[in-house]
């Protein structure tokens, strides 16, 4: 949580693009190091704990960055569509990523899956360099702590922001379903591992279908390929 709040300050200080580049470079190193440890069979529990903690913190740095970068990259009328596409990217990654990693681990090794992840992060880094932002932020002289407090006060002053963020706490309740799915698969539905995998797949495919079916998303995809907008 502290890292996420600090990430917000960093984004407002130096701009989302730089934070995203930093996040992706760190993720490349972390995935490569984990892959090398696995390749040379030097893995110990503390390696995994330390690397997972640093990776989680790095991802926490990147989470708000993409969302704050969208308004700097697309026009206001395309914002909703761009967010849909962003969501589509996440959903596709969540569907295909574990599936492909599972296949690679089964066929070859976990190290190979990690090296492939390094390549994916590398491609994302190259794409990030290509992002053209509308304006650069001015550096603030206030301390990070003061800026965090200022940011929290800003949210508190704005009821739309405050209650929108409050509503996001519903995800904690909705997430309670996730440990139930494997229990239902085993005890109620009594299905195999493959069929269980398809249960997560159905959830993710629903997300992908929704993002594709959203008209603004279709318009935005069309604008990328030069197709005309729907009336």
């Amino acid at each position: 949580m502290i890292i996420t709040l600090y990430a917000g300050v960093l984004i407002d200080r130096v701009g989302g693009k730089r934070v995203l580049i930093l996040e992706r470079i760190l993720l490349i190193f972390l995935a490569a190091i984990t892959g090398l440890i696995l390749l040379f069979d030097q893995v110990e529990i503390w390696h995994i704990i330390v690397l997972s903690t640093i990776t989680g913190s790095t991802i926490a740095l990147g989470l708000p960055t993409t969302q704050s970068l969208v308004p700097q990259v697309v026009s206001e009328e395309d914002r909703q569509a761009a967010n849909s596409m962003n969501q589509l990217g996440y959903a596709t990654g969540r569907t295909l990523g574990p599936l492909e990693a599972g296949i690679l681990i089964a066929v070859r090794s976990a190290a190979l899956a990690l090296f492939e992840l390094t390549v994916v992060y590398g491609a994302a880094l190259i794409a990030t360099f290509g992002i053209s932002v509308k304006h650069q932020r001015k550096l603030s002289k206030d301390s990070a702590f003061r800026q965090i407090v200022d940011g929290l006060a800003y949210v508190r002053r704005n009821p739309v922001l405050l209650w929108t963020i409050f509503m996001a706490f519903s995800t904690i309740f909705f997430a309670m379903i996730f440990p139930i799915v494997p229990v239902y698969a085993r005890d109620v539905l009594e299905v195999s591992e493959v069929k269980f995998g398809w249960m997560w797949g159905a959830l993710a495919i629903g997300q992908v279908a929704r993002a594709f079916a959203t008209q603004p998303a279709a318009d935005f995809a069309g604008s990328l390929t030069g197709s005309p907008r729907a009336p």
């Binding site: 949580m1 996420t4 709040l5 990430a7 917000g8 300050v9 960093l10 984004i11 407002d12 989302g16 934070v19 926490a60 989470l63 708000p64 960055t65 969302q67 704050s68 308004p71 700097q72 304006h135 932020r137 800026q147 965090i148 200022d150 940011g151 929290l152 800003y154 949210v155 922001l161 929108t164 963020i165 996001a168 706490f169 995800t171 904690i172 309740f173 909705f174 997430a175 309670m176 996730f178």
Partner: peptide, 21 residues
């Protein structure tokens, strides 16, 4: 724009509560 990074950061805090869920 001056506050957007911090606003999005505050928003991602409840999302990280998924693990609590």
């Amino acid at each position: 724009p001056e506050y957007r990074g911090r606003v999005m950061a505050v928003y991602t805090i409840p999302l990280q509560g998924v693990s609590i869920g």
